[in-house]
Design a protein around this nucleic acid. Structure first.
Lengths: 123, 123
DNA sequence: TGCAACCCTCACATGGATGTGAAAGTGAGC
DNA sequence: GCTCACTTTCACATCCATGTGAGGGTTGCA
């Protein structure tokens, strides 16, 4: 598919699809006329990128963790340098911290909403 | 405590403590000489702010959800306008999405690491 | 043939969180 | 009184994700 369709199906501005490519997060093919040609499964990948960006990860890190998610079965040992392993362990831990923080605060918001809505008539 | 101590205890540059104040996330007292004076519990609050920023929330939103976390017991009904309720529900849902995304990807990283480290000698 | 709707690259702009440093006031200790 | 380590405000700089638009090529259709 071309950039317009991918843009619509992922809700992502064309500008950003080109930006993600510039940052080497995705690597579309090119048609004879120079147009970008996106594979079907890039839809999911783009959504994943957007989710991670929204969760606070920079493109530099996303680029490093994406290969781990490509094929759960086929491990890329070529990428598995000691530095890469260390990076991944570090990012995994940071993500766990983020999850904890978000969970804690989301639950607090939930409690607050329950209290406010539940007591509304009584308040 | 003054800004230097809070900075050290939270690992936050002074510049940012002033920035958070400018964004109305914290409201320190002032000593007679004009120095900022921070209450003890602002340590936790600053750490919470940093965690939420790191998880992708902008200061504008953090400012809105912080009052819900102040006193789990004492609900501020004055803040509970319909718009505020809607905002909180919306942010709660967005945080849940972030948690899902982070969890999914963190688990994938974990699986990858398990596979790479576990199979290292066999690969 | 010409228009409309795509696509391309390039480049400058914006907003939010953060870095850096200048110029100046305060306070404790020598 | 001087010095040093703190503090203040102010302002300009940087990084990154994103917006915007110019200038131009490609394709399909009336």
């Amino acid at each position: 598919m071309r950039i317009g369709e991918l843009s619509e199906r992922t809700g992502t501005p064309r500008r950003l699809l080109r930006y993600y490519e510039e940052q080497k997060l995705i690597l579309p093919d090119r048609c004879a006329n120079g147009y970008r040609s996106y594979d079907e499964r890039l839809v999911d990948r783009v959504l994943q990128i957007r989710g991670l960006l929204d969760a606070g990860l920079p493109t530099r890190i996303i680029k490093q963790i994406l290969p781990c998610l490509d094929k759960p079965r086929r491990i890329h040992f070529s990428d598995a340098t000691p530095e890469m392993i260390a990076t991944l362990e570090n990012e995994r831990d940071r993500m766990s911290q983020r999850i904890e923080c978000l969970t804690r605060n989301r639950d607090a918001i939930s409690d607050y909403l329950d209290a406010v809505l539940g007591n509304k008539t009584a308040g």
